[in-house]
Amino acid sequence: MPKIKVPKKSPSLDMTPMVDLAFLLVTFFMLTTKFRPTEPVTVDQPSSVSEVPLPDKGVILLTVDAKGRVFFNIEGQQLRADILDRLATRFNLTFTDQEKKQFTLLTSIGMPSNKLKEYLNAESPEQKIMNEETKGIPIDSANNELTFWVNAARNAAPTNSIAINGDGDADIPTIKRVIEILQNNKANRFALITNLESSETAEE
């Protein structure tokens, strides 16, 4: 019986289409990825069915973490410098150019005014420790610094919208107090940041 000869094939494949595809995907992900600097606090937002996305720009962000500490954040270096200038006069502080530069490059700030200078001069590992230990921006009526922050931000960026980024475990009195401070600053419309809920409560 004659043997059927299987033609010997070379084990090497033409990988060009695969490379094309891989680089196409790499390009896509590279262009869509936005690198965010790490936030000093992690917040686990509650979920909701609301589908309104958070705008990319122009948001005054007030973060309330699970322990009820309040952090302030706004994007834009020019704006941040402006806000720091306004705060400096409020708190009777003077900031060096170096400190101002540092402030524009940071993200959320949760320091009382007396620690702010120290925080801006600290190295990044020390800042991490300070963020762990801080009590956040003071919100109690005796020492209400958050209202200065909100006021400065509202004056520096009147068109920015306000968003509260609260942890699901944050307590109601803190949240209510933050809302009250916003109301006192004539900011009656704001957004609560949530996660998109999986369709567990979807009904009908």
Binding site: A22, L25, V26, F29, M30, T32, T33, Q45, S48, S50, E51, V52, P53, L54, A163, N165, I179, E180, L182, Q183, N184, K186, N188, R189, F190, A191, L192, I193, T194, N195, L196
Partner: peptide, 25 residues
């Protein structure tokens, strides 16, 4: 390798918001 890196670092789910309006105080 690059593809895997970018896929893993991308967060596609953008945060959502819920607008509320409080009465003028």
């Amino acid at each position: 390798l690059l593809l895997t890196f970018f896929i893993l670092t991308t967060t596609l789910s953008k945060p959502r918001t819920m607008d509320i309006t409080m009465p003028v105080k």
